[in-house]
Amino acid sequence: MLKNLLLVAALGSAAAFTGCESMQTSPHMTENLQLLQNKTWIATQIGGTAIKTAPNARNIPSIQFDEASKRVSGSDGCNRIMGAYTAGNDTLLLSQLASTRMACINNGNIDQKYNEALSKVTHYQVFGKTLKLLDRHGNLLIQFESAVQPR
């Protein structure tokens, strides 16, 4: 009976240590987070619609993910946005999003479409200079290009 108890305890300990080891941050996860964070992303597409903005435009839809504070900020094409985020290997949760409330005219409702898309984000993909924010089904919500070359 004592042998069975020791065997069960040993197997349970081994399973617990194995489970803890697998929860460590993988190099791939760290790489994805490094590609996502600490740069400005300029929106180029919302859903299936391309966004055309002049390079000298004042309020281009954009987003930044600050690694140190875990805060997100940017513009919806009219108003400033800010909030918090939590990111995993390919998951992204935006929370406590708030924005200024300026009147926006002649912007084709880009601000409304952008904010609606942000509210559905659950995942992300980064490939070089391109960031894709996706919904829980993997559908493209917003596509961005990096304003600065990745290091």
Rank of each mutant, 00 (worst) to 15 (best):
D111Y: 05
I105E: 11
L94Q: 03
L93T: 12
G128K: 13
M102Q: 12
M29D: 06
G88C: 05
Q96C: 04
P27G: 04
G128M: 07
L35R: 05
N106Y: 10
P27K: 06
S73C: 05
I105M: 13
A84I: 02
D135G: 02
T18K: 01
G77F: 06
A54R: 09
G108L: 07
N107H: 11
T100M: 09
P55T: 05
G48A: 13
H137G: 10
C104Q: 02
S22F: 15
A50D: 11
Q24S: 14
D66S: 13
D66L: 12
E67C: 00
T25G: 01
S13G: 15
G77P: 04
D66N: 15
K129A: 05
G138P: 13
S22G: 10
G12D: 04
G12N: 09
G77Q: 00
M102L: 12
Q64G: 05
A57T: 09
K70V: 05
I46E: 01
T53R: 15
G74V: 10
G19Q: 11
P61L: 06
T100K: 10
E116G: 00
W41R: 01
A103H: 11
H137Q: 15
Q37P: 05
S99M: 10
T100L: 08
I60L: 07
L131P: 01
E31G: 00
N107L: 11
N139S: 10
D66A: 14
A14C: 14
V121A: 08
L134Y: 02
G12H: 06
Y124N: 01
L97S: 04
G48E: 14
V8M: 13
K132I: 00
R151A: 15
R136P: 00
Y124P: 02
G77D: 02
L6S: 01
T86I: 12
E67D: 11
A43Q: 01
L6C: 03
T18F: 14
Q125G: 06
D76N: 15
Y124I: 03
G19Y: 15
P27S: 08
A50F: 09
F17I: 14
I46Y: 03
T30G: 00
S73K: 09
Q24G: 13
L11T: 12
H28T: 09
G108H: 11
G83P: 11
Y114S: 03
D111N: 13
G128V: 06
I81P: 00
N59F: 13
R136K: 14
S75A: 10
W41I: 02
V72M: 09
S75T: 15
Q45L: 02
L35Y: 00
